[in-house]
Protein backbone atom coordinates (compact mmCIF):
# COMPACT_ATOMS: atom_id res chain seq x y z
CA UNK A 1 0.00 0.00 0.00
CA UNK A 2 2.63 2.45 1.15
CA UNK A 3 4.92 1.38 -1.69
CA UNK A 4 2.15 1.92 -4.18
CA UNK A 5 1.61 5.35 -2.81
CA UNK A 6 5.31 6.19 -3.11
CA UNK A 7 5.33 4.81 -6.64
CA UNK A 8 2.36 6.94 -7.48
CA UNK A 9 4.05 10.02 -6.10
CA UNK A 10 7.18 9.18 -8.04
CA UNK A 11 5.25 8.75 -11.24
CA UNK A 12 3.56 12.02 -10.62
CA UNK A 13 6.92 13.64 -10.01
CA UNK A 14 8.36 12.15 -13.19
CA UNK A 15 5.46 13.47 -15.15
CA UNK A 16 5.89 16.84 -13.55
CA UNK A 17 9.59 16.92 -14.43
CA UNK A 18 8.75 16.01 -17.99
CA UNK A 19 6.26 18.82 -18.16
CA UNK A 20 8.68 21.19 -16.56
CA UNK A 21 11.36 20.31 -19.07
CA UNK A 22 9.22 21.83 -21.73
CA UNK A 23 8.74 25.00 -19.76
CA UNK A 24 11.13 27.79 -18.95
CA UNK A 25 11.63 26.69 -15.38
CA UNK A 26 14.96 25.64 -14.04
CA UNK A 27 14.39 22.84 -11.60
CA UNK A 28 16.44 20.54 -9.53
CA UNK A 29 18.85 18.63 -11.67
CA UNK A 30 17.89 20.16 -14.98
CA UNK A 31 18.89 23.40 -16.53
CA UNK A 32 17.78 25.06 -19.70
CA UNK A 33 20.36 26.55 -22.01
CA UNK A 34 19.21 30.12 -22.49
CA UNK A 35 20.87 30.21 -25.88
CA UNK A 36 19.63 27.08 -27.70
CA UNK A 37 16.79 26.35 -25.23
CA UNK A 38 17.91 22.74 -24.91
CA UNK A 39 17.12 21.17 -21.55
CA UNK A 40 20.35 19.82 -20.10
CA UNK A 41 21.07 17.44 -17.27
CA UNK A 42 23.17 19.44 -14.82
CA UNK A 43 25.75 16.70 -14.24
CA UNK A 44 26.30 16.37 -18.00
CA UNK A 45 26.71 20.11 -18.24
CA UNK A 46 29.29 20.18 -15.47
CA UNK A 47 31.11 17.22 -17.01
CA UNK A 48 31.37 19.35 -20.12
CA UNK A 49 33.04 22.26 -18.20
CA UNK A 50 29.66 24.00 -17.96
CA UNK A 51 29.53 24.45 -21.71
CA UNK A 52 26.29 23.53 -23.45
CA UNK A 53 26.99 20.28 -25.37
CA UNK A 54 24.38 21.29 -27.90
CA UNK A 55 25.30 24.87 -28.87
CA UNK A 56 28.60 25.57 -27.10
CA UNK A 57 27.27 28.32 -24.87
CA UNK A 58 29.67 28.95 -21.99
CA UNK A 59 27.68 29.05 -18.76
CA UNK A 60 28.93 31.26 -15.96
CA UNK A 61 31.25 29.53 -13.52
CA UNK A 62 31.69 29.80 -9.79
CA UNK A 63 35.24 30.54 -8.65
CA UNK A 64 35.37 27.05 -7.15
CA UNK A 65 34.61 25.33 -10.47
CA UNK A 66 36.91 27.67 -12.38
CA UNK A 67 39.84 26.96 -10.09
CA UNK A 68 39.15 23.24 -10.48
CA UNK A 69 39.28 23.65 -14.25
CA UNK A 70 42.47 25.71 -14.36
CA UNK A 71 44.67 24.72 -11.41
CA UNK A 72 46.32 21.30 -11.24
CA UNK A 73 44.54 19.18 -8.69
CA UNK A 74 45.51 19.89 -5.11
CA UNK A 75 47.95 22.69 -5.94
CA UNK A 76 45.82 25.77 -5.18
CA UNK A 77 46.91 27.53 -1.98
CA UNK A 78 44.74 30.51 -1.20
CA UNK A 79 46.23 33.93 -0.43
CA UNK A 80 44.37 36.85 1.09
CA UNK A 81 41.48 34.65 2.20
CA UNK A 82 41.41 36.51 5.50
CA UNK A 83 40.65 39.84 3.81
CA UNK A 84 36.96 40.38 4.41
CA UNK A 85 34.23 42.77 3.32
CA UNK A 86 34.25 46.26 4.80
CA UNK A 87 31.37 48.67 5.14
CA UNK A 88 32.92 52.15 4.88
CA UNK A 89 29.64 53.94 4.12
CA UNK A 90 27.78 52.14 6.88
CA UNK A 91 25.36 51.35 4.12
CA UNK A 92 21.97 50.15 5.30
CA UNK A 93 21.48 46.42 4.87
CA UNK A 94 24.84 45.86 3.20
CA UNK A 95 26.54 43.66 5.78
CA UNK A 96 23.34 41.68 6.25
CA UNK A 97 23.25 41.01 2.53
CA UNK A 98 26.91 40.00 2.55
CA UNK A 99 26.32 37.58 5.43
CA UNK A 100 23.37 36.08 3.59
CA UNK A 101 25.42 35.67 0.43
CA UNK A 102 28.29 34.08 2.30
CA UNK A 103 25.86 31.54 3.69
CA UNK A 104 24.28 30.91 0.30
CA UNK A 105 27.39 30.83 -1.90
CA UNK A 106 29.83 29.37 0.64
CA UNK A 107 32.39 31.94 -0.46
CA UNK A 108 33.63 34.94 1.46
CA UNK A 109 33.96 37.48 -1.32
CA UNK A 110 33.77 38.01 -5.07
CA UNK A 111 37.31 36.86 -5.77
CA UNK A 112 39.49 33.97 -4.72
CA UNK A 113 43.25 34.26 -5.16
CA UNK A 114 46.06 31.83 -4.68
CA UNK A 115 49.26 30.27 -5.86
CA UNK A 116 48.85 27.12 -7.92
CA UNK A 117 50.27 25.08 -10.74
CA UNK A 118 48.84 25.11 -14.25
CA UNK A 119 50.10 22.07 -16.18
CA UNK A 120 52.97 22.10 -13.73
CA UNK A 121 53.72 25.80 -14.23
CA UNK A 122 53.64 27.76 -11.00
CA UNK A 123 51.46 30.87 -11.16
CA UNK A 124 49.40 33.30 -9.16
CA UNK A 125 45.74 32.80 -10.04
CA UNK A 126 42.88 35.16 -9.17
CA UNK A 127 39.35 34.11 -10.02
CA UNK A 128 36.36 36.37 -9.64
CA UNK A 129 32.93 35.01 -8.81
CA UNK A 130 29.77 36.51 -10.26
CA UNK A 131 27.58 34.83 -7.66
CA UNK A 132 28.80 37.27 -5.03
CA UNK A 133 27.16 40.66 -5.63
CA UNK A 134 27.73 40.31 -9.37
CA UNK A 135 31.46 40.00 -8.88
CA UNK A 136 31.58 43.66 -7.95
CA UNK A 137 34.82 45.17 -6.66
CA UNK A 138 34.83 46.71 -3.23
CA UNK A 139 37.69 47.03 -0.80
CA UNK A 140 38.08 43.28 -0.17
CA UNK A 141 38.19 42.40 -3.87
CA UNK A 142 40.60 45.25 -4.59
CA UNK A 143 42.79 44.29 -1.66
CA UNK A 144 42.83 40.59 -2.52
CA UNK A 145 43.68 41.28 -6.16
CA UNK A 146 46.37 43.80 -5.21
CA UNK A 147 47.87 41.27 -2.84
CA UNK A 148 47.82 38.66 -5.62
CA UNK A 149 49.57 41.07 -8.00
CA UNK A 150 52.16 41.97 -5.38
CA UNK A 151 52.75 38.30 -4.63
CA UNK A 152 53.34 37.61 -8.32
CA UNK A 153 55.77 40.53 -8.49
CA UNK A 154 57.63 39.50 -5.37
CA UNK A 155 57.82 35.80 -6.13
CA UNK A 156 58.53 36.39 -9.83
CA UNK A 157 55.53 34.35 -10.89
CA UNK A 158 53.21 34.82 -13.84
CA UNK A 159 49.81 36.25 -12.96
CA UNK A 160 46.47 35.06 -14.33
CA UNK A 161 43.22 36.85 -13.49
CA UNK A 162 39.81 35.54 -14.53
CA UNK A 163 37.48 38.52 -14.62
CA UNK A 164 33.75 38.52 -14.17
CA UNK A 165 32.24 41.64 -12.73
CA UNK A 166 29.42 44.11 -12.83
CA UNK A 167 32.01 46.78 -11.96
CA UNK A 168 32.85 48.72 -8.84
CA UNK A 169 30.73 47.87 -5.81
CA UNK A 170 28.21 50.64 -5.23
CA UNK A 171 27.67 49.85 -1.54
CA UNK A 172 31.25 50.84 -0.71
CA UNK A 173 31.09 54.11 -2.62
CA UNK A 174 34.29 55.99 -3.31
CA UNK A 175 36.39 53.29 -1.63
CA UNK A 176 35.42 50.93 -4.44
CA UNK A 177 36.45 53.50 -7.03
CA UNK A 178 39.88 53.77 -5.45
CA UNK A 179 40.41 50.01 -5.87
CA UNK A 180 40.69 50.68 -9.59
CA UNK A 181 43.70 52.92 -8.99
CA UNK A 182 45.14 50.56 -6.41
CA UNK A 183 45.02 47.43 -8.59
CA UNK A 184 46.26 49.30 -11.67
CA UNK A 185 49.19 50.77 -9.72
CA UNK A 186 50.14 47.30 -8.53
CA UNK A 187 50.07 46.10 -12.15
CA UNK A 188 52.35 48.97 -13.13
CA UNK A 189 54.91 47.58 -10.70
CA UNK A 190 54.45 44.07 -12.07
CA UNK A 191 55.07 45.49 -15.55
CA UNK A 192 58.22 47.22 -14.42
CA UNK A 193 59.48 43.97 -12.96
CA UNK A 194 58.99 42.34 -16.36
CA UNK A 195 56.43 39.81 -15.18
CA UNK A 196 53.72 38.25 -17.32
CA UNK A 197 50.06 39.06 -16.70
CA UNK A 198 47.33 37.20 -18.55
CA UNK A 199 43.87 38.64 -18.17
CA UNK A 200 40.91 36.44 -19.05
CA UNK A 201 37.58 38.14 -19.63
CA UNK A 202 34.46 36.11 -19.01
CA UNK A 203 30.77 36.89 -19.11
CA UNK A 204 30.17 39.63 -18.01
CA UNK A 205 33.14 41.95 -17.49
CA UNK A 206 32.04 45.55 -17.19
CA UNK A 207 32.45 48.90 -15.44
CA UNK A 208 35.29 49.59 -13.06
CA UNK A 209 36.88 46.19 -13.56
CA UNK A 210 37.02 46.68 -17.33
CA UNK A 211 38.40 50.15 -16.63
CA UNK A 212 41.21 48.76 -14.50
CA UNK A 213 43.00 45.40 -14.25
CA UNK A 214 40.84 43.51 -16.77
CA UNK A 215 42.09 45.68 -19.64
CA UNK A 216 45.73 45.73 -18.58
CA UNK A 217 46.93 42.23 -19.41
CA UNK A 218 50.04 41.71 -21.50
CA UNK A 219 47.80 39.17 -23.12
CA UNK A 220 44.05 39.47 -22.92
CA UNK A 221 41.99 36.35 -23.57
CA UNK A 222 38.22 36.06 -23.56
CA UNK A 223 35.68 33.28 -23.52
CA UNK A 224 33.35 33.19 -26.54
CA UNK A 225 30.27 35.41 -26.54
CA UNK A 226 31.05 37.12 -23.24
CA UNK A 227 29.66 40.60 -22.61
CA UNK A 228 32.63 42.93 -22.18
CA UNK A 229 32.45 46.69 -21.92
CA UNK A 230 32.78 49.78 -19.80
CA UNK A 231 29.22 51.11 -19.77
CA UNK A 232 26.43 48.57 -19.49
CA UNK A 233 24.26 48.04 -22.58
CA UNK A 234 21.21 49.53 -20.87
CA UNK A 235 23.05 52.71 -19.94
CA UNK A 236 24.28 53.10 -23.52
CA UNK A 237 20.80 52.52 -24.93
CA UNK A 238 19.39 55.14 -22.57
CA UNK A 239 22.11 57.58 -23.63
CA UNK A 240 21.83 57.14 -27.38
CA UNK A 241 18.09 56.43 -27.25
CA UNK A 242 18.27 53.47 -29.61
CA UNK A 243 18.73 49.73 -29.39
CA UNK A 244 22.25 48.36 -29.66
CA UNK A 245 23.02 46.04 -32.56
CA UNK A 246 23.25 42.30 -31.93
CA UNK A 247 26.65 41.29 -30.61
CA UNK A 248 27.67 44.78 -29.50
CA UNK A 249 30.22 44.47 -26.66
CA UNK A 250 30.66 40.72 -27.22
CA UNK A 251 34.08 39.06 -27.12
CA UNK A 252 33.92 38.80 -30.90
CA UNK A 253 33.18 42.54 -31.14
CA UNK A 254 36.17 43.35 -28.92
CA UNK A 255 38.43 41.10 -30.94
CA UNK A 256 37.36 42.86 -34.10
CA UNK A 257 38.01 46.26 -32.54
CA UNK A 258 41.46 45.28 -31.36
CA UNK A 259 40.94 45.12 -27.60
CA UNK A 260 41.58 41.45 -26.95
CA UNK A 261 44.22 39.07 -28.23
CA UNK A 262 42.31 35.86 -28.57
CA UNK A 263 39.01 34.14 -27.94
CA UNK A 264 39.59 30.81 -26.26
CA UNK A 265 37.01 28.10 -25.68
CA UNK A 266 36.82 26.76 -22.18
CA UNK A 267 38.11 23.33 -23.14
CA UNK A 268 41.32 24.94 -24.45
CA UNK A 269 41.73 27.56 -21.72
CA UNK A 270 44.04 25.70 -19.37
CA UNK A 271 46.38 24.47 -22.09
CA UNK A 272 46.46 27.91 -23.74
CA UNK A 273 47.39 29.62 -20.49
CA UNK A 274 50.03 26.99 -19.72
CA UNK A 275 51.49 27.39 -23.18
CA UNK A 276 51.64 31.17 -22.84
CA UNK A 277 53.36 30.86 -19.48
CA UNK A 278 55.94 28.47 -20.95
CA UNK A 279 56.57 30.90 -23.81
CA UNK A 280 57.51 33.56 -21.27
CA UNK A 281 59.86 31.45 -19.21
Amino acid sequence: MVIDKVKKVNEKEEKRVKNEKASDMMIGKWVKCDNCKEILYKDDLHQNLSVCPNCGKHFRLSSRRRIKQIADEGTFKEIGGDIVTKDPLNFKGYMKKVEMLKEKTKIEEAVKCGICEIEGEKAVLAVMDGNFLMGSMGSAVGERITLAIETATKKKLPLVIFCVSGGARMQEGIISLMQMAKTSSALAKLNKAGQLYISVLTDPTTGGVTASFASLGDIILAEPHALIGFAGPRVIEQTIKQKLPEGFQSSEFLLEHGFIDKIVERKDMKSTIAKLIRLHK
Binding site: S185, A214, S215, L216, G229, F230, A231
Partner: peptide, 26 residues
Protein backbone atom coordinates in the same frame (compact mmCIF):
# COMPACT_ATOMS: atom_id res chain seq x y z
CA UNK B 1 31.40 60.39 -15.95
CA UNK B 2 33.10 58.92 -19.00
CA UNK B 3 30.76 59.05 -21.99
CA UNK B 4 28.65 55.90 -22.31
CA UNK B 5 28.24 55.94 -26.08
CA UNK B 6 28.69 53.39 -28.84
CA UNK B 7 31.82 54.99 -30.25
CA UNK B 8 33.33 55.16 -26.78
CA UNK B 9 32.89 51.41 -26.41
CA UNK B 10 34.20 50.70 -29.89
CA UNK B 11 37.33 52.69 -29.15
CA UNK B 12 37.91 51.11 -25.75
CA UNK B 13 36.67 53.43 -23.02
CA UNK B 14 37.59 50.88 -20.37
CA UNK B 15 41.08 50.37 -21.76
CA UNK B 16 41.70 54.11 -22.01
CA UNK B 17 40.78 54.69 -18.37
CA UNK B 18 42.70 51.65 -17.16
CA UNK B 19 45.81 52.69 -19.08
CA UNK B 20 45.72 56.14 -17.47
CA UNK B 21 45.46 54.68 -13.98
CA UNK B 22 48.43 52.41 -14.61
CA UNK B 23 50.60 55.05 -16.27
CA UNK B 24 49.79 57.87 -13.86
CA UNK B 25 50.88 55.73 -10.93
CA UNK B 26 54.41 55.61 -12.35
Amino acid sequence: GAYPGMGAEERGQGEAIARNLLEMSQ
